[in-house]
Design a protein around this nucleic acid. Structure first.
Length: 581
DNA sequence: CACGGGCGCGCG
DNA sequence: AAAGCGCGCGCCCGTG
């Protein structure tokens, strides 16, 4: 059963239409006042548990979540269109020549684009629910048309089952992302403030710099004999360093570390603290943490490879330094799980390299550290060497330690290395490459293709460089993209099982001090490429750990079927995110 | 003064 | 150990 949701003829109304799985109308479109949308969705969810079909989950779901309503499944037309419009699997279906592009997203949290432009998103996160500023959505006819077009494209594609799985996982991702944003990562503001105070000094007034940062800047000016030095200016800094006899080519930390000079230590210290202050300091706290939660904002499919991106708070780049402030509520724990060596394992599966798969565990399901397994086979047991070599192969390293180790790996695992090599060659020729479930690279730009046809020597050199660069991109794309698919399926399976657990009686016996029943359900609160975090009531820890492992096995089988390779996950149960792993 | 590229560095 | 993939963010600085 599908439930199509679209803006009505008047923007204060919404149309809902029920359709059977074969596309026939089950119940004619019903007009609903926006204010009544929540209860209408809830009752349909209870009676029909339909798959909600909407232009974008991000336009509808945050408002429903704010009303306390969650749905089981959806079809996000925009995310699916984004995949189908490039997928090589659907190249011969006619969809890519004929689809109607959806209007661009308007971020509901930020409201209209004019507000976004005018005040740089300040307090944007906590503005009124999106229903008040919902942008132009497709009308019901357009939603119905696009759904049919997409289903037709999938059915007539070269791999209908894979595309179906990919699009359903992507749509589930849209629900998870909205729910994670709604829930937020538990964040102890007072711990964060204490940390800032210890490292930077008291919170500065207005736009001043913290005193410890100013003190370090003073030390730098003295040590370099440069009274007007602005340490934030790379040019300024470079000149001062050269005057002091430090002949560095850049001002990157790892390069500066090589020099012996009294200015280096305070400079690196300044760098570290300056970054903390500007990126994750008091301003960040004020803007992103509310009522003990960091409301991370995720962009599903925001990366070409299908990985998620994040927006605003740097949700996917939380530095280790401030993870001390992410602490579970009393009576709860953080369950932090990450897939072990996800990309190398994905490569072994893609290339069907049984030798590499065997290095990651045996047929009996005894999983090994894949890097250690490879190291034992050919790198004298040196795990870090094996890791550098394998990542180098996936990234296309040609020089340095990594590049030197790749040939050894190629002798050991010719199938795996050949697989990424083929992807690289295809990319260099300007061809598209595709992940296992069917996400393809966008086509090359006109500019790129023109460059490849150039005749003069200097331009040809540039073109070859551009070709090699695209080769590294496509080489990595097939692995990173398939890894993102695995992670998305894992997440979708995890969500489904957590919903079942939450609905079961197991969660009932949890009462707060005042006697009111607290649902106390485990919540997915963060996702970082190959890692998830669940904020979990203590009495459900064992069940959730089990679910995390089951979901990993389910994801692997959904994508690859039965293969002699597992995707083990490491699970830590901690109070504080900084203690994970 | 707004914008965008470059840089440096955080994450995977 | 330090060059090879994908990102976001904040700052500097040149351009229009």
């Amino acid at each position: 059963m599908y439930a199509l949701l679209a803006t009505g003829p008047e923007s204060s109304t919404v149309l809902v239409e029920l359709r059977n799985d074969d596309g026939t109308v089950a119940a004619p479109a019903q007009t609903i006042e926006r204010s009544q949308l929540g209860s209408a969705v809830q009752s349909l969810e209870a009676t029909h548990h339909p798959r909600w079909v909407w232009d974008r989950a991000i336009h509808w779901y945050p408002g429903l979540l704010a009303d306390g309503i969650r749905v089981e499944k959806c079809h996000d037309l925009a995310l699916c269109q984004n995949i189908l419009q490039y997928s090589e699997f659907a190249a011969a279906t006619g969809y890519q020549q004929n689809f109607t592009p959806l209007p661009p997203e308007v971020d509901p949290a930020r409201g209209s684009s004019s507000i976004y432009g005018a005040q740089a998103g300040q307090e944007s996160l906590f503005d009124a629910p999106p229903s008040s500023s919902t942008p132009v959505s497709w009308d019901l006819a357009a939603v119905a048309r696009e759904l049919v077009a997409q289903k037709t494209a999938i059915a007539s594609s070269t791999h209908p089952a894979r595309l179906t799985l990919l699009l359903s996982a992507e749509s589930a991702g849209a629900l998870v992302a909205a729910e994670m944003h709604y829930e937020g990562i538990p964040w102890r503001e007072e711990l964060h403030r204490r940390l800032l105070n210890d490292l930077l000094g008291p919170e500065p007034a207005n736009f001043a710099h913290p005193e410890k940062l100013e003190a370090l800047a003073g030390q730098l000016r003295t040590a370099l004999n440069a009274p007007s030095l602005n340490p934030d200016s790379p040019q300024d800094l470079m000149r001062a360093l050269h005057r002091a006899g430090i002949e560095t080519k850049s001002t990157r930390s790892w390069e500066l570390q090589e020099f012996k000079h009294p200015v280096i230590e305070p400079l690196l210290n300044y760098r570290k603290l300056s970054r903390l202050f500007t990126t994750n300091g008091w301003n960040w706290l004020q803007q992103w943490v509310k009522d003990g939660r960091f409301h991370a904002e995720y962009v599903v499919g925001g990366v070409v490879s299908g990985r998620w991106a994040s927006r605003g708070g740097g949700a996917m780049q939380i530095p280790a330094q401030i993870r001390h402030a992410a602490v579970a509520d009393p009576g709860y724990s953080l369950i932090v799980a990450d897939a072990a060596q996800l990309e190398p394992r994905v490569l072994a599966a893609l290339a069907q390299d049984t030798a590499m798969a065997a290095a990651g565990g045996d047929a009996a399901g005894n999983n090994k550290d894949l890097y250690a397994g490879i190291a034992a086979e050919g790198f004298d047991g040196d795990r870090s060497m094996a890791k550098v070599a394998l990542l180098g192969a996936i990234y296309g390293a040609t020089t340095g330690d990594s590049g030197r180790l790749v040939p050894q790996l190629a002798r050991m695992y010719p199938r795996a290395l050949d697989f990424v090599e083929q992807a690289a060659r295809a990319g260099e020729r300007g061809e598209r490459v595709t992940s296992y479930l069917g996400r393809s690279t966008p086509p090359t730009s006109q500019e790129w293709r023109d460059g490849q046809r150039s005749t003069n020597a200097a331009e040809q050199r540039r073109a070859e460089q551009a070709a090699r660069s695209r080769g590294r991109f496509t080489r990595n794309f097939v692995v990173q993209g398939t890894a993102a698919e695995w992670a998305c399926c894992w997440l979708a399976e995890l969500r489904r099982r957590l919903r079942v657990l939450a609905a079961s009686a197991a969660v009932a016996p949890d009462f707060s001090g005042d006697g009111a029943a607290q649902p106390g359900t485990p919540q997915l609160v963060a996702f970082l490429h190959d890692e998830v975090m669940v904020h979990c009531p203590d009495h459900l820890i064992e069940e959730v750990k089990q679910i995390v492992h089951e979901s990993s096995r389910a994801a692997t089988e959904l994508i690859f079927g039965k293969i002699p390779l597992e995707f083990p996950v490491n699970v830590s149960v901690v109070q504080c995110y900084a203690d994970a792993k």
